[in-house]
Structure formats: C-alpha cells, structure tokens
Design a protein around this nucleic acid. Structure first.
Lengths: 195, 195, 195, 195
DNA sequence: AATGAATGAGTCTTCATTCAT
DNA sequence: TATGAATGAAGACTCATTCAT
C-alpha cells in the first residue's frame, strides 16, 4: 500500500506542476510554488524527481505517450480511412486542444527536453499512410512525397497548436472553432472528399 | 553638452541580447551575460534600457516594424497580385526565415510583450486582399470568410515559423526547403494558379 | 522532522542587527553587514525574516513589548502611587536608558514601522492615572486635562530619550545623570511631593 | 549677473533638497530625485556642492544660523525678561515649528553632520540668563545649576520638536496646540509668573 | 562653466538543491 | 523515508560621482 501512496504523491506533483508550468511558464514557476500548490514538503519533490527539469521532462513524455496511445487507438481500428480521418478531425484534435496545459508546455519546453524528431517521424508516417489511403484522386497527392508530407504535417500541427494557444491567450479576433473549421475544409479540399 | 547617447551602443546591446535571447531564451540569459557579450559596463545597459524586459520588448517591436515595412513595400507595389504573391513566397518568407533569432524571440516572447492581435489583424487584412485579387476561380474561396482567412493565415504563419524553428534546432528529417516547397504548392493548388 | 527553526539563530540575527542599526542607522547597515557580524550565510537571514524591514520591525516590536511588560509590572504592584513613581524614576527610566540601541532605533524607525499612537495612548493613560493618584494637592493638576497630560508625557519621554541619545553620541556638556536629576526634581516640584 | 544666476541655482537645490530630505529622509532621497525636482542637470548639483552629504550639512547649518539669528534678535532687545520670554514662547517657538522640514532634518541628520554641542551650549547659556532674570522667587531655581538648566533645555527642546514631528506624522491623539499650551503652563508654573 | 552619459561596486533578494534530523 | 532548515552563487538593478564633450 505504501506503493499506492507514492504513486499518488508523484501524480499530485506532476498535476500541479503541469498546471503551473502551463500557466506561468517553466522559469516563472519555482519549486516553492509547486510545494505550495501540492502542500507537500520540498524534500518530497526531490524524492520523486531528481530536479526541476525532470519534472517537465516527465510531463512532456507522459503527456505525449497518452496522446500517442489515443491516436493509434483511433488509427488502428478496422474502420475505413475516411472514418478514421473524420474521427481524427472531429474528435482527436478537439480533444487534444482541451489539454491546453500540455500543449503549452509541449510547445515551449518540449524541444529542449525531448527527442522531438522521433515523435514527429512516428506521427507523420502514420498520417501519411492514412492520407494516401483516403485520397480519392491520386493525382491530388502528386508531387507530395514523404518530405512534403512531413513538412505539411509539421506546419499544420505546429500551426494549429500555436494558433489555439494564441487565441486563448490574446484577444485575437478568431475563435478555436474557426481554426477547426479551417482545418476540416482544407483537408476536404486537399483530398477531394467530404467528411 | 556632455556626451550624446550613443546609438551605436544601443544597437550593440540590442544585437547581443537578440542573439543571446534567441540562443538561450529570455530566462536563461542574464544581464550579466549581455554585459560579457557586449563588453559594456552593467550601468550602460541601464542607460539605454530601463530593464531586462524592455530589451526584449524593443527587439520584438523593432524587429516587427522592419518586417512589416518590408512586407508592405512588397505589397504596395504597382505589380499584379500574382507577382506580389510570388515575391511574398519566393523572397519575403525566405528572407524572414533568415532572421531566426527574431523568429525565436517573436514566437516565445511576443505574446507576452506586445499587442499581438493588432499585428495579426493588420497582416491578415493585407493578405486577404491580395489573395482575393489573385484567386482565378472565385469559387475557390467560397466559404472562406474573413475569419477563416484569418485562421488560415495564423495557422500557416505560426506553422511555418515554428516548423523552421524546429527544423533548425532539432534533427527532424526535413529541411527548410521542404517547408518552403510545401507552402508554394499549397498556395498554387488553393488558388488554382501557377507562380 | 528535519531541523527545527533555530531560535538561537533568530536571536543572534536580531541582536547583531539591533546593534548595527543603532550604531549606523537602518540605511547604513546592509544585509551583508549583518551577515559578517553574525557569521551566518545570507540565506539564513532570509529563513528567519522575510526582508530587511521585517528585522527592524521585529526589533521595535519585541523591544517595545519587553519595555511595556516591565512598566506594567512596576505599575501593577500593590504599592502606593508614590512608591511606584519612585520606582519609575529611579529604576525604570535608568533601565530603559541602558538599552540605548533600542532607543536609537525606536526614535528613528519606530514611527515608520509601528502604530506608535496606540503605544503612546496606552502609556499615557497608565501614567496619567498614577500621577493623579499621587498629586498631593489636587490643585496642582488644575488645568491639566488628558490632552495636556498626553502632551506632557510625549514631550518628556521624547525629550529624555533624545537627550540621552544626544549626550551619548556627541560631546555635549551634560551627563545622563543631569538628565535624570532634572526629571526627578521636575516631578517632585510638579506634584509637590518628595520621592 | 552670472553671480546672481549662480546663487539662484544654489538656493533652488537647497530648497528642493530640504523638502525632499524632510519628506522622504536623507537615504530615500537620491541625487536623481533632486535633479528631477530642480530640473537642473546632475552636473550642476556637483558644481555647487561637493557631494550629497554637503547638501544636508549646508541645509542644517544655514537653517540653524537663521534660527539663531532670529532668537538673538528677540533676546537682545531692550525689553524686560518677561516680555522676551513671552515672545519666545508665543512667537519664536511657533515660528520654528512652521519650518517642519528643517526640524525633521535637524533631528535626524544634524547630530551626524554638525557640531551640535556648540549650538546647544550657546542656546542654553542665553536662555539660562533669561530665565534667571525672570524667576520671581529665586528659591524657585534652587538646585538648578547650569547643568540642570542645560539638561532641562535639551529635554524640552528635543521633546517639543520630536513631539511636534510625531504629532504631524502619526495620528497620535494630541495637537500642536496642546504641546504649546503645555509648554506655556510649565514655564509659568516653574517660574511663578504669568505670561 | 555646463552637461548628462558612463561607471561598477554594492544593494537586496531568490531559489534549486542538499543534508541533518 | 520524510522533512524543511540551510546554503551561497547568482540575479536584476541602483546610484553617487566622474569626466568627456
């Protein structure tokens, strides 16, 4: 049972830190802030994590893994490519966007603390496959090799995430809905399909 | 009349700070780092800027103004919309991407230190106009209102900048060229034109 | 349970700071001076006090409380008014004057860091009562209402303290003894009694 | 004419500094504050005074001299002692109290920056003479030698000044009038006269 | 003489991490 | 293992004074 208690503390730290890092940034969050938020003694923080940096690293890593799992769950189903794509756009992306804290940290700290290239590679391979299987008129993807595809995915994902982040933290004149709508239209037009 | 404020010193500080902020981030750059880099005494930093924050703010603001000026220079010419668009894609964007330091800072600090919404608004209005004037088949823009356009621009610009940043700071499998190529193809397909 | 806060350290800091503040003033005493005097690391100063100002505030407050306690100890006894007055003049005041450090700080910083009016009010009420009970010939206090009494006490106390301070820090031609003697004579004459 | 201009600047500095020192204290007033207040360039401050300390010193010295002059003006007249004493209490002291700025500085900085003992000596000699000439019943001054007198004067003057200072800067329950009234009554009773 | 930019030692305070208990 | 006091290098910034112009 001691084990259960430990896991609990660990996750409390992770949870609070995630919120604080997302809200105030990594550098504007002190270990002491985490201590206050968790009501745990400082020493305990260092029982579960070797240092401040490791806390972000774990947040990013675990957050990513959960995301990845959810994605491959969707992608791995027996359904048609179009259905998968629809789920991707209508469910998966909006779900991700709910975890704004994670996105914030991912975007500002991930590069520093993770091997991001592996993540991108994995993601783009999976989606490239899906897109190819879906494109009605194969000519549409003409000139779109793996590199272009990867570029496209990176641009879109980073674009979407950052746009949502911007929309939520400034008073820019658009809404998250506009972004999602734009994405859907773009995918439909690009692939010549209707979702 | 004593010594006049030395515009040269001011620009040395700005230059060094820009590099350091871009390289190590705002919080990992200390005033003392700037002092070492510039070989100026601490006090001098503070004769030209009231505090550390003002240094980023000025970098962002002046950088943005220069960018904006170059953009409107291109946009304001008497040439056809297509030529302008071509210049935008072939010259302007690549030029921007050269100033990676500025992009880095813009992306990580701009929201905090500037009224970013005004900038976005200005930019998207200008480009919306251009795109409308260029789109061969007006049906192509069907369903694309101002909000969608703004969303698209934000997603693309943030996407491009962040993608370039990622490409340059990690060992992701694509090159800046791939990104630029993707952008060009996308614009051409979207508007049904060839640049 | 880790280390407990060391009451001893706290008091060393208070002691050293009191001496330094009294000797050189609040502004001419740096935290670094206190560090040197106490041989404690800087950080420790801040484990016991939130900032420099709090150190003075505590010195003033604790010093005052001790003083007050001693005063009411004397005043609260079952002895006659005259005996109490005698003790006040012969013991209490001279004792206070020994803690020159405290007086110095009290006089120069107290107004800023304490609600001095409450202290004055409390003191003057107590002494007014004593004086009334002692005055042989009630006519002597004629025309002496509460306000006059308060004025008198403030003038005398501030006068005595500052005079002692002056005597000790300059080479003025009188001694503390002269001041004490003057006070005694004045009280005796005013109240028509012999102590 | 250059001379006139100079004197003017000097006195502007002195005037502003006096106000600022009195209001915020010596250490909370920076040379830069004086610069802002006077609208003079920093360099000019140092043309007229060798350093910050000298500014207070001059304020104290000149303020004192003016005071002294006014006092001896009153004291040196051909009038009776009683009239002089009355003027002292009814005019001179209230007048002094108007220059609260000076009092503030005098009390907090004078000891450090002036040979205060000479001033006290001079003052007490003069007033001792006056008091002796006035005391109706010589027995009243019995036991009051020069030292006692000096002690009394120091206590009263410091008491009065500090009390006024206290009254004006805190919300203590008495008014300056109460202090002046107390002084008058005390003098009358002590000397057995009516002013 | 007048000016105000230049200077850098010194200020207070923070904070990630350690380690005695 | 749990705790939280201890630590001190490092942080941003100030300011009296000087001196080039």
């Amino acid at each position: 049972m001691a084990r259960a208690k430990d896991e609990n503390k660990r996750s409390i730290i992770l949870h609070s830190a995630k919120m604080l890092f997302a809200q105030n940034g990594f550098f504007n969050t002190s270990i002491s802030d985490i201590v206050k938020e968790t009501n745990l003694p400082v020493g305990s923080i260092y029982t579960y994590f070797t240092n401040k940096e490791e806390i972000v690293r774990v947040i990013v890593e675990e957050g990513w893994n959960e995301l990845r799992a959810r994605l491959f769950d969707t992608m791995g189903s027996k359904e048609s490519g179009e259905v998968k794509l629809k789920k991707l756009i209508d469910n998966f992306i909006p779900e991700i966007l709910n975890d704004l804290d994670l996105i914030n940290i991912l975007l500002s700290e991930a590069i520093k603390y993770t091997k991001i290239e592996e993540k991108v590679e994995e993601l783009s391979t999976a989606i490239f496959g899906l897109v190819q299987s879906v494109a009605k008129d194969k000519k549409i993807l003409e000139g779109f090799d793996k590199s272009s595809m990867e570029a496209a995915l990176i641009v879109y994902f980073l674009g979407i995430f950052n746009a949502v982040k911007l929309v939520r933290s400034s008073s820019v004149g658009i809404k998250v809905q506009d972004i999602l709508k734009f994405v859907k239209i773009t995918v439909e037009k690009s692939l010549g399909i209707t979702l």
